[in-house]
């Protein structure tokens, strides 16, 4: 393993992480809810879900964040890694997987680990391991 020091951005990463933690803290302290994006989104897709308005408004805030962001700074430019087929397959897997697994990076990785949930620790280890293995396979086994 070599470290990509040129790409390493410790301060924005820590500050951005702190903001994510602050948002999750606000949501649980004030609304009593978990800021898990896949769970909120999945709940909104169900016919019956409690607290639909609060879930929808959290998601709306998240979706509108770039519009408020551009008032202060330039939006970071995303550098996409795969074509349409990869994007489609990835989206499907993320949709199905997060619902069966009851959470994603935010729900398990941030909120779950913060409340010391063994289920979330297991889920986080599983999706991280699968992520590492997938990138290894795509980049180093099959070339990329």
């Amino acid at each position: 393993m070599t470290i990509d020091w040129a790409g390493f951005t410790p301060w924005p990463a820590l500050a951005g992480g702190a903001l994510i933690g602050l948002a999750a803290a606000l949501f649980v302290l004030l609304n009593g809810r978990i800021a898990g994006i896949s769970g909120l989104l999945g709940g909104l897709l169900e016919r019956h879900t409690e607290g639909r308005a609060e879930k929808a408004l959290f998601v709306l805030g998240l979706v509108l964040a770039p519009l408020a962001w551009v008032l202060f700074a330039q939006l970071p430019e995303p550098d996409f890694q795969v074509g349409w087929l990869g994007t489609l397959v990835a989206g499907l897997l993320v949709g199905i997987g997060t619902r069966y697994g009851s959470g994603c990076t935010s729900g398990h990785g941030v909120c779950g680990l913060s409340r010391l949930s063994p289920r979330s620790l297991a889920a986080t280890l599983a999706f991280m391991a699968a992520g590492f293995a997938t990138v290894f396979a795509l980049r180093h086994l099959f070339g990329g």
Partner: peptide
């Protein structure tokens, strides 16, 4: 489910 999610995330 978490494994499937991780594969999609990695792709």
């Amino acid at each position: 489910g978490s494994l499937l999610f991780g594969v999609g995330w990695g792709i």
